[in-house]
Amino acid sequence: MKSFGGEVIFLDRSDINTDEIIPARYLTEVKKEALKPYLLEDLEIDGFDLKGEKLQRAKIVVSRENFGCGSSREHAPWAFEVNDINIVIAESFARIFRQNMFNCGMMAIELAKEQIDSLFALSAKGDVLAEVDFAGKKISFKVAGEALTLDFALNEFDAALVEAEGWVGYADSKY
């Protein structure tokens, strides 16, 4: 399994699309690692600093609705993966992006709007650290002495993909 957990970066907008996550001009790369410097290059939202330390340190993304809409490019999860970000948490995901995440053994976790709101409220207090308990399906968010633990749900197939580190290994052994 991949390693999950660490510092959280908050992207406060709905409908963040895969062109913003990794622009088409980098799709000529055949190696995942080459995408590393270009993650979120075209994303423009208030308070988001592309060149900032926060993005460098982040291991988890928290965002709003319909995350990862648009193009089917798996370069979007890869751009996160090569930057050591293996979890995106949002209110909802576009189908292809969500599937691509699990297909790579990464996690796209859906939480209710109120829960996402409370995470954004936490982020106002400082840098948020998250610990992930995959077996117990819990994530603890910690900031400035405060902690918030939330349960998450994965369907069985998605959990199996995370454990198998992706769909290729799973499918090859089965079909």
């Binding site: 089917s72 490019r73 992006f97 599937q99 992706g166 769909w167 290729v168 499918a171 090859d172």
Partner: peptide, 20 residues
């Protein structure tokens, strides 16, 4: 349906794809 590279890879290899 549009899919990502991993689904495509398994499609090429096995002729299957998983959907909800």
């Amino acid at each position: 349906a549009g899919v990502g590279t991993t689904d495509l890879e398994v499609g090429i290899l096995k002729g299957v794809c998983a959907f909800r």
